[in-house]
Simulated scan of single mutants.
Amino acid sequence: MSDDGDASPGTTAGERRYTPNDVNAGRWVRRGVLILVVAALAYVAYLVAAAFFPRWWSQRVADQVNGHLTAGTLWGLFYGFVFTFVPLIVLAQVRRRFFNWEWRGIVAIVAVLLATPNWLTLSVVAGNSKAAHAGERIMDVDAPGFRVATAIGAVSAAVIAVVVVAMSMRLSHQRREVKNLRGKLSERDE
């Protein structure tokens, strides 16, 4: 045997046996490095998106509106309403019992993606980057009324979606009660 303190029976000098704890520690180090790399990439993607998307979205809206207040208002109401109402109705499907947690996450991601036009408008309105300020100026000149109309459409869509989901839940509850009562009546009649 060797004088090496790390050697254990069945190993030669200079070799080291790894225990399951050593392997698990290596996994956690790899996971930690992976998390740091993903976080850094997400931050860089955020910076690139903040520099590009607000100006790009403002140009797309300005091309549609073409400087007309009426068109800006109508397009704003359309985008605000549709891209708030539809994602909220899709998101409400998460409460369905037949979805497992994986599908609920997918449905939630789809709902967030469906609201992309509203997220882009919000990046112009609430952003503090140079692109967001440029986007505000573009919308002020070439898309008047769009931002305010989008906010009005989004708020009204949110209210209507909450009412629709609440009514749906109430009707579902009443259907279950009627089914339960019919079952009790049929038991009593037998």
Rank of each mutant, 00 (worst) to 15 (best):
S123Y: 02
A157P: 09
W101R: 14
A71E: 14
T150E: 02
V155S: 08
A126P: 01
W103K: 07
F85I: 03
L88Q: 00
A132N: 05
V163D: 09
A111R: 01
H68T: 11
S168P: 03
V163W: 12
A126C: 11
E177Q: 12
G76M: 04
N118I: 06
Q174H: 15
F85S: 00
V163S: 04
A158N: 12
A134L: 13
T73R: 10
T150P: 00
A161S: 08
M139D: 14
V165H: 09
T150S: 01
V178Q: 08
R104P: 02
A154Q: 10
A143T: 04
A151H: 06
P117M: 09
F99Y: 15
A166K: 14
I160S: 10
V163E: 07
L69C: 00
V162C: 07
W119Q: 07
G153E: 07
R137C: 04
R176W: 13
A115C: 04
V125L: 04
A161Q: 05
T84N: 04
M169G: 15
V162H: 13
V165F: 03
I109N: 12
L74Y: 09
R95N: 03
T116L: 10
V82Q: 00
T121R: 02
G80E: 00
P144K: 02
V110Y: 02
A157I: 12
W101N: 14
G72I: 05
T70D: 08
R104G: 11
A108W: 08
R147H: 08
L122D: 09
E102R: 15
